[in-house]
Simulated assay, not measured.
Amino acid sequence: MKHLFTTLICLCSVFTTLPSVAQTAYDITEDQPAQLNGIEYGFAIRNESKKEVGKDTFSRYELSIYVTNKSGCTKLFFPRQTPFGLQNQDQLAQFDCLNATGARLTSKSSTVRARPFSVPYSTTSKNAEGKTVTNTIQVQAGHMLTNGETVSDNIIVIVPSGEQPRMKVRVQMQELAER
């Protein structure tokens, strides 16, 4: 009975914390990016060609995936503890090509990440002579996406011949502070 109670408590704690690390997925096309809280998630086709893989012909696409802040303010992402630690705190979105084959060492997905920001932190201490010394260091406080900033990545995908890349973006649900 004691093990059953402990197991139930553990399961309840896991299921109550899972929504805090949930991701929301959106289908996107080249001319229909996803918009969420003033941030645009999209992709653009930079180049298209045909590629022979074995006996089959495939379409090869060079894509630029991007996240653009169009909210009118800077978005700050602060670290928060999850059941899995402080992993991927800088991840803005995961882009997946649903019909990509992954052939010839090409991608099926890619991640776009925010850049870190730091704040000054000052401490006072006494040195060997007994004098008070102030030391200031930069401490990483989180990650940011300034207004108008675009963060992008380039990937190459191979899809079946005659098909366009079918893209989905998974947006990391994070606590945002607007400035």
Rank of each mutant, 00 (worst) to 15 (best):
L98H: 02
R170C: 03
L11D: 14
C73A: 09
Y121C: 11
Q87S: 00
Q164E: 13
C12E: 09
I155M: 15
S110I: 09
Q89F: 00
C12W: 10
N99G: 04
R170Q: 09
C10N: 03
K2N: 15
E129M: 07
P33N: 10
T146W: 07
S49N: 12
F43L: 07
G72M: 08
I28D: 05
Q172N: 15
P79Y: 00
S152Q: 09
D56G: 02
D153W: 14
I65E: 05
I65A: 14
P165K: 06
S49Q: 12
L63V: 04
T6S: 14
Q172S: 08
H143D: 00
D56K: 13
G42W: 05
V169H: 02
T29L: 12
T24E: 06
S49W: 07
N154Q: 13
R115Y: 11
M173I: 09
V151L: 02
K2H: 14
A114S: 02
A177Q: 15
T74L: 04
G102S: 01
A141L: 07
Y61T: 01
R104G: 00
Q81N: 03
Q89T: 01
N37Q: 11
R104T: 00
G85K: 01
S107M: 09
I137C: 12
G142S: 10
R115T: 07
L18I: 13
D56S: 14
E178P: 00
A128N: 12
N147Y: 02
K131T: 12
T134W: 10
L98T: 12
I137E: 05
A100R: 11
C12S: 04
S125I: 03
G54H: 09
D90T: 04
I156H: 02
R60A: 08
E40A: 08
S161Y: 15
V112I: 03
V67P: 05
Q87I: 05
P116R: 10
Y61A: 02
A141S: 09
Q174R: 15
T134S: 09
G142N: 09
D96Y: 11
L176F: 08
